[in-house]
Design a protein around this nucleic acid. Structure first.
Lengths: 136, 136
DNA sequence: GTAATCCCTACTAAATCTATAGGGTAATAT
DNA sequence: ATATTACCCTATAGATTTAGTAGGGATTAC
C-alpha cells in the first residue's frame, strides 16, 4: 500500500511542476488545492526540500518551488525519499541491502527469487518515469 | 515492505513444491526447516488451504500438501491471498477497485498515472511467475 | 515593527503486523 | 475403544508504523 505521505508528496510535486513558472507557492495553497492536511503537508515538503527536490523562500510571498526541471526528476529518487526502499525485502535492495537472519542461502531462496524480479520491474518503471510524465 | 505472512507463506509453498511427492507434511516440520513460528505458520497454512492452494490430512501421518502442480500456481493468486491487492492504491486495482475520495479526476491524477504503470509491471511479473519458477 | 510564511521538535491516536494463548475437533494407529 | 497425533478456530496483546496534531521559533517583505 502506498503511504499517504508518498501520495501527498507526489501530488505536491506534480502541482508545482504543472505551473508555468517557478515562483514560490505557499503550503496553504497546495494544501487547499490538493485537499491535504496543511501540517502534514508541511512536514512532507520539508523532507522534499532537505533531499534536494524543492527550494523554499521564507517570509511574505514565500513558499516552495521546484529546483530542477520536471523532466530531470526521476521517480526512483522521489520514491526512495518518500516511500523508502523500492525493494520489498532488504535482501534484494540495491541501496538498503541487508541479509535476512532466517535465510541460510539467498541463491536458493524462493522469496529472494520472486522479489528480485519484482524489484527489477519496479525499478524499470521508476527509472523511466519522470515528474514530467505525470502531469500533462 | 513484504509482510512476514507473505514471506512465510511463500516459503511454505516452495517447501512443499520442492518435495518429490505430495505426501502430507506436518506443520512442525515446515516450521522447523524454514525457521517460522509454528503457531503463526499454522494460521497461514490454514489460509492457504481455505483459498484452494493446499489440502490437509488430519490425524497421525497427517499434514499439508499441494493440491495443484507447482507450475500451475501463479504468483498473482498467491500474492493476492497473502499480501492483498497487487495495486498500491485502490483506484488502480483490478480486483479491489475503489475511487479516491480526495481525487477529483483519475484521468489527470499524477499518482494514478504512476501507480497504473507500477501495477502493470508487477502484474506482468506475477502472471509470468509460477511456484515452479521459484524452486529450481 | 508586524504580519506572513517557512522551520523544527515532540507528541498522540489509530491502525496494522506479528505473533501467542488456549483450547476444540477430527482422523488415525493400535 | 482409546490414546495420540495433528489440524481447526477465536481471542488477545505487544510492537511498530502511519497519519496526523500541537506549539512554538526563525526569517523575510513591507
Amino acid at each position: 500500500m502506498l503511504s499517504k505521505k508518498t501520495k501527498y508528496g507526489l501530488k505536491a510535486l506534480a502541482h508545482l511542476a504543472s505551473l508555468p513558472n517557478r515562483e514560490p507557492v505557499q503550503i496553504a495553497e497546495i494544501s487547499k488545492q490538493e485537499q491535504i492536511s496543511q501540517k502534514f503537508l508541511e512536514s512532507i515538503l520539508l523532507t522534499l526540500r532537505r533531499t534536494g527536490f524543492l527550494g523554499s523562500k521564507k517570509g511574505k510571498g514565500g513558499g516552495y518551488y521546484l529546483i530542477k526541471d520536471a523532466k530531470d526528476i526521476q521517480m526512483t529518487a522521489v520514491m526512495r525519499v518518500l516511500e523508502g526502499p523500492i525493494a520489498m525485502v532488504p535482501c534484494v535492495s540495491l541501496n538498503f541491502y541487508e541479509k535476512c537472519e532466517d535465510c541460510p542461502d539467498e541463491a536458493t531462496c524462493s522469496v529472494n527469487k520472486l522479489m528480485l524480479k519484482v524489484r527489477d520491474a519496479n525499478l524499470e518503471v521508476y527509472r523511466n518515469t519522470t515528474l514530467q510524465d505525470l502531469i500533462s
